[in-house]
Design a protein around this nucleic acid. Structure first.
Lengths: 153, 153
DNA sequence: CTACTTGCAAAAGGTTTGCATCTGA
DNA sequence: TCAGATGCAAACCTTTTGCAAGTAG
């Protein structure tokens, strides 16, 4: 990761911790580390993977329960979102500024991210039409990726 | 359910059982009953709910393992699909002719079905653009339904 | 007959919870 | 100081699996 990205993260973290304090929660090293792993991860991580990455990168052992509790906390704080890939575990990712959706290979579980304005717009329309207050949405396309198409031939 | 719907189901079941036989699998009363419950259910059912409904409607006890195995079998046969509502259980529904997506209330977990041609079309485009062979897709919108908007005020 | 199914109970696997201890503010 | 956070282990829940017995074709 570049110096610039690091700065960006540090800035985000400082701001986030202020909000946490204001809401009466406490900032801890554990939360910081988990967040840092999520922030810089290009993959969607499971709780167990996060635990391991924290151990490797920061030489710090965190209880898996703490990881789950932090993840739920971050989800409530709306800075992390979870995703069901269909491999039996919940996976988490840092919520980027711009929304995106996922395309998942049913064979190798590889995840490709994409975003599409037309779909975004239509989701809003549909929610309105049904009287829903839109909170979030998941659009996941399942299929065979190019690599697996060849492998399975 | 009307007589006409019953006829339709019987016809479907006969046809499906022929395919099952051809593929070398066996037809059983258990599978028939589970399928009948799914076919006529307006809700998306969990394995446990299906087990209970079979017991009530047909006065027949089915092991939960059998229900799960049948459900997986039906999914492979492409006549049933599963859905993650976010309440900790997998839910199943009979695959209707026309595809539809789901809008789920994050408070009461009520499910509204909808379909939207624009979204369907764009999914195909996105899959193509990324070299995926489209198999399936999930489009789920999360929000607060009208009822819960009032309740939570 | 015999390969596929079922049912039971045990196992598995992910996630949550109770509780004593610790710690940030 | 003390409410919130952590870590451990146990508990929970849903789903899967091994195996002996049953049954469709």
């Amino acid at each position: 990761m570049t110096k610039k990205e690091e700065k960006k993260f540090e800035h985000f973290l400082t701001e986030f911790k202020t909000i946490v304090s204001k809401k009466g929660f406490k900032n801890t090293t554990q939360k910081d580390r988990i967040l840092e792993i999520l922030y810089f991860s290009k993959e969607h991580l499971s709780a167990e993977e996060i635990t391991k990455k924290v151990q490797v990168k920061f030489n710090m052992d965190i209880g898996i329960a703490t990881v789950y509790r932090s993840l739920n906390f971050f989800e409530h704080m709306n800075i992390v979102e979870s995703l069901d890939v269909g491999d039996g575990t919940k996976r988490f990712e840092f919520k980027k500024e711009q929304h995106h959706d996922h395309m998942i290979c049913t064979n190798c579980h590889q995840i490709i991210e994409f975003s599409d304005d037309v779909i975004e717009l239509n989701q809003i329309k549909i929610a309105e039409k049904n009287g829903f207050i839109l909170e979030d949405h998941i659009m996941t396309i399942y299929g065979l990726c190019e690599k697996c198409q060849k492998t399975l031939q």
